[in-house]
Amino acid sequence: MFSLIIVINEGFKLVKRLAVVDVDLCVGCQCCMMACNRRFGEAGVAKSAIYVRSAGGIEKGFIVLVCRACIDPPCMKVCPTDALSKRIGGGVILNQNKCVGCKLCVNACTIGAIFWDEANEKPVICIHCGYCIEYCPYNVIKMEETG
């Protein structure tokens, strides 16, 4: 259920990615974060791959941080153990067994969309499963075809 979603549409192979549609629609409820963490059967936010914070005070609105599925991901390039591999349609897939927890990927992500699971000392990166979308009543995020 939470692995890569591949949609076959009229004979074309289309892959989807999670996209932030309009960040100004965001009310900052953080229900997407809680949803992401529930994928692991737990409540809380420690394992969330999407993150919402204010843009310098709630009056200024919010920033929604999530992997935008780079075609040429900088995080992958700096991984010394090849724990990150390219995901079809953009972004990366993490091989937990290969990861040594060096955090280089966290620093390499230009938009700051790689988070850190303190308990496991591993990065948390969006796999574009779309589970969070169901829990965003304001349509801030959606699944988008990447071709």
Partner: peptide, 25 residues
């Protein structure tokens, strides 16, 4: 803080969460 909270029955928890969430919205 950024914690994760364990639940006794993950499957039922997720289903019930969804039910409550939809009731609310």
């Amino acid at each position: 803080g950024k914690k994760s909270l364990p639940v006794a029955d993950s499957k039922t928890y997720r289903e019930l969460y969804k039910e409550i969430f939809n009731l609310l919205i």
